[in-house]
Structures are given as C-alpha cells and as structure tokens.
Design a binder for these strands. Structure first.
Length: 512
RNA sequence: CGGGGUGUAGCGCAGUCCGGUUAGCGCGCGUCGUUCGGGACGACGAGGCCGGUGGUUCGAAUCCACUCACCCCGACCA
C-alpha cells in the first residue's frame, strides 16, 4: 500500500488509515475553500495576522519552509552564475519618475516616508511626527528595486568588460494592497529579485528564459507543482518590461496562480538611468536588462496545491521535518524502552540525511501528536510502541495517502528514504493529473462560460490578440489570460469572444 | 474608496432587541490522580476596565453620539 520497493519485508500489510472522527474545528475544501486555507495556515503554525493591517507574522514553521525554498533557489541561482547583493529599502521618490510605465504600474501602491523623527506630543497624547523633521526628498519603500539598482548599475558599467552583471537580492518589499491574504498577497512580503545587465539583446533574452526555466524546474522538482511556462499579454505585463514570462500553476479550487516571473526589460531602464557601455567596437550603447522574482507567495501555492482536509501536505524536499517518530507507552518503564529504540531509529534516519524529529514529549498523547503532525504536513510518521520493541517492528505512515503499514524496524531507514522519493513523485503526479483533468478547450463563448462556471480550471481558447478583447473577457467573466504558452503548437481558429481569426490558443483562467 | 458585518477571558462564541444580583459557555491554560497503539477522563483552580471616548440614567456589555480596529464582498494587484 505504501508503494515500497519489493525488497521490503512488510510484516503487516494494508492497515488502511481511518480517521475515527473528523476534526470539527477544521473546514473542508468543499465547505469553504478560503476558510480551509486560512485554517491550515493557522493550525499548521505557518503564519498569523499582525498588529499591522495587511502584514503577517511568519511563524517559525512557516519560515522554515521559506528557508528551504530559499536554500534550493539560492543554489540554483549560484549554479547559473549569479551572486547575492543588497540594495536599500528606501528609494528616492524622483527615481520613480524616470521610467514612465514603471511609475504608472506602482504609483498607486507605494508607501512613502516623509519624516525622520518623532517627538512627544505637547498635549501629552504619546508621540507624534515632528513636523520640523520633514525629508527634503521623500523616500519610497521599495515595491521592487529596478530603479535603485539601475541607478547603481550606472556606476558599475563603463565597458563591455564590466558585463554581464548577474546579481540577485533576497529582500522584503512593500506594496500597499487593498485586500490581502496570508502568503498570497500581503502588504509586505519576502522575495528574491534578480537584476541582470547584458551587452546584447540576445544575451539578455537568453537570461530571461534561463531563469524562467530555473523557476519551472524548482516548482516541479521541489514544490512538486506542475507549471505552464508562457509569456504575458500586454495587460498583464510587468510595468516597464518589454516582455514578461511566467510560470502558472493550477490550485485545487480551479484557480490559477502565478508562481514566478522573469522579465526581459530591453533597454528601458538603461535608457531611463543612462546606463551605457563602450562596446568592443568602441560604440557607446545602452545595456540590456532582465529581472526575475519569486516570493513567499510560493508558500501559499504549496498549501493550495497539495493539502487536504486533514491539513497541510508538504513535499519531502521542502518539509522542515521529513519524518517524525512518535513513541507509544503506558508507564515510565515502557517510556524508557520505547524511546531508546526510537532514538536508534532516529540515528539510522539521520545517517541517511533525513530530517527527523523524535517527539518524546510526555505532555501530549500519541493520538494528539498524530493529528498534530498531520496538520503540519510531515511526510512520514513512524510510531513505536512496546509491541514493536518486542517484535522488532515499526509502524510507518505516509501523509499524502494516509496509508500505514508495519515493517521490520531494521528497514526503517531504507523505507523512509524510499518513501521520500515516492511521496515527492506521487505529489507531482497527482497535481499533474489534476491539472490535466482541469485543462479544457473552449471553442465557443458558451462553452467558455460554462467551463468557467461549472468547473473552473485552465481553458485553452483562441484569442484575437487585442487588449480590448482581453479586457472585455475579463470584465464579463473575471477570467484573464494567464499566459501565451511557450511550447504550444500554432493552430488557426477563431477568437472565442470576437470571432476574429487567431493563430494560436492562449491559456485563460480565473486567478489569484 | 464604495457596500455589508463584527468587536465580551489566549481562541471560538452566548448575553445586547426589552438596562437591574457576583457577566456566562466550549476549547485551551494550571495542579493532582487515573490514563496512554488515532485528538483521554475526573476533581479543583487561574484568567474580563464587555474595542475606545463622551452622553442618557439611581443604575450601562445592553440605550444614544462620536471614534478606532478588524473581517467579508467590489475596484487594484506577485
């Protein structure tokens, strides 16, 4: 049942997991998807809302997931030649006026620092802003760092010998959002932003695609979430980019989620910030640019892609705890015996590089712990009781399918290791099957609407390529063009909305 | 910024319409005991300026005015 390789001696087979009673304090996806999501965030200890509107506190367990994502991505960035750096949180307001599209895109959601000092209220009502400490030039808290970085790059670049610049920064950014949701959209969020400068257009485009592929690779192989790579329509493009590429994932409620973006910025920022270099031929030319980023939103994607009505489900590669051992005992004598055996198992797993936790707390009961670790999405659970010690066995349960078996304790290390691989792959396969079931063709406006209302999911449909049509579709159905697929075959047809000729299908969905 | 809603113990709520003992309930928390292979049970216990300010009244969680905060639905968005 666990899908362990054949050489494992399964002592007792097919104990199908059965939950005796459903947690009454936990919503199901069916009942209320967004409440289910919030319940997971809260009950799994990922994050909580804070004293500041729209901002969340990322709790240790949630942050540990982000750290695992960071570690994997950071390695991938370095493997592709990038180095980390750090630029200021504050950006002079004037920088924003340099690139017209960029200002327009971000102006409405910028937090601005106007003063640098507080003082005691003369009327005794605490502290107030000291009006005498007004900044000469106001500072914008970065919604993204293109402007400050390009202003800096001007200093760094003189010759083609200074290129390329391949820099990434891990940082927080602020976008004053009207409506926020834990991880998916918060006023302040954590992310990484890569900013590169190149001598040629071709090289910059190549970089843009390379990083898109890095993101797709990360999403599929670490997060176990299948993604579709594509380019954005003009409406959805990053403010200031020539072209925006993205990876799009499908969530369990049939809504799409943009999981990463990679932008080809052309020479827009180089021109706005006057970043020029002397080419080999001796000509003074503007630099070509890219930027690319993923954020803590990925944690939200992870939750919505795999989790079930029992709580969070984490892919082993991103799980802060990959296996937990729960000892079962009746008295202090048994506690000692069982925990000693459990420690042996723990060591065996650690030798294999598995992140394992032995929960030997006496303050909680086994049943309580089982539920706790299910909420937290720990991929594998082992439990050892007096019977196991006597028989040389251990009970092993997998979180993704909720199945469990009893196996020989000597094989625990191997079994957990095998299960890690199996679970990682199974989550991906399951998510991929879900996406395939929920990707549909629509060749008429009626079927387009019917699919959206009855099923949701991705819709492949013809589009006449105009922003007007896209806007109309959005207004009438709330569905947007998620992307224009990179790998899609050309196919002529008629726009699902306007009936005008179209050369390819594009991907529509309602999105987060 | 529009439309709707909610503020009472750490969390979830009742009480508010119709003012009147010491403001309750569930979960959680603490101590002790029995338990421990799927969220244990019992006994005892701690915990509240009823969002804030001002008013009406002999008396306000309850009525009135103002105010603050948060949530949901829209417009905006990674």
């Amino acid at each position: 049942m666990l899908n362990l390789p054949d050489h494992f001696l399964v002592i007792k087979t097919q104990i199908l997991y059965q939950r005796r009673f459903m947690a009454k304090d936990f919503s199901t996806r069916e009942e209320n998807y967004s409440k289910w999501y919030n319940d997971i965030v809260q009950r799994a200890g990922l994050a909580e809302s804070s004293a500041v509107r729209g901002c969340m506190v990322i709790k240790p367990y949630g942050y540990a997931i982000w750290e695992k994502m960071q570690a994997a991505l950071d390695k991938m960035f370095k493997d592709t030649g990038h180095a980390n750096a750090y630029f200021p949180l504050f950006i002079p307001k004037s920088f924003f006026s340099r690139e017209a599209d960029h200002v327009e895109g971000f102006a409405k959601e910028c937090a601005v620092v106007t003063h640098y000092r507080l003082k005691n209220d003369p009327e005794g009502k605490g502290v107030i802003v000291d009006e005498d400490a007004k900044l000469e030039e106001e500072l914008v808290i970065r919604p993204t760092s293109e402007t400050i970085i390009w202003d800096t790059y001007r200093q760094w670049v003189q010759s083609y010998r200074d290129l390329p610049i391949l820099v990434n920064q891990w940082a927080n950014v602020v976008r004053w959002e009207m409506r926020t949701r834990m991880f998916l959209r918060t006023a302040e969020f954590l992310w990484q932003e890569g900013h590169t400068a190149h001598a040629t257009k071709e090289e910059a485009l190549e970089e843009t695609y390379r990083m898109l592929d890095v993101y797709a690779d990360f999403a599929e192989n670490f997060m176990a979430i299948p993604v579709i790579r594509g380019s954005k329509s003009e409406n959805e493009r990053f403010a200031g980019a020539v072209e925006t590429f993205c990876i799009e994932a499908l969530m369990q409620d049939g809504k799409a989620l943009q999981a990463g973006t990679s932008h080809f910025l052309g020479q827009n920022f180089a021109k706005a910030f006057d970043v020029k270099f002397a080419s080999k031929e001796g000509n003074l030319e503007h630099v070509w640019a890219t930027s690319w980023g993923v954020s803590t939103r990925l944690v939200g994607a992870l939750i919505m892609a795999h989790s079930d009505d029992h709580g969070l489900v984490l892919p082993p590669k991103l799980a802060p705890i990959q296996a937990v051992i729960v000892p079962i005992y009746k008295n202090s004598g048994q506690y000692e015996t069982v925990c000693n055996k459990a420690r042996e198992v723990k060591e065996a797993l650690e030798k294999r590089g598995i992140l394992v936790k032995l929960d030997d707390r006496d303050t909680h009961k086994p049943g309580w712990k089982f539920n706790e670790y299910e909420f937290k999405g720990v991929p594998v659970r082992l439990s050892i009781g007096p019977r196991d010690v006597e028989n040389g066995t251990v009970e092993i349960a997998r979180r993704d399918t909720l199945e469990k078996e009893v196996i020989s304790i000597d094989q625990a290390g191997q079994a957990v290791e095998a299960l890690m691989t199996e679970i990682q792959q199974h989550l991906f396969r399951r998510a991929l099957a879900f996406r395939e079931e929920n990707t549909r063709m629509a060749d008429s406006w009626e079927s387009f609407n019917r699919i959206l209302d009855e099923k949701g999911g991705f819709i492949l449909a013809h589009w006449d390529g105009t922003a007007e049509t896209e806007q109309k579709i959005k207004e009438e159905t709330k569905a947007t063009i998620r992307c224009i697929l990179l790998d899609e075959n050309k196919e002529s047809g008629k726009c699902v909305y306007s009936g005008k000729p179209s050369g390819r299908r594009v991907l529509f969905a309602r999105a987060y």
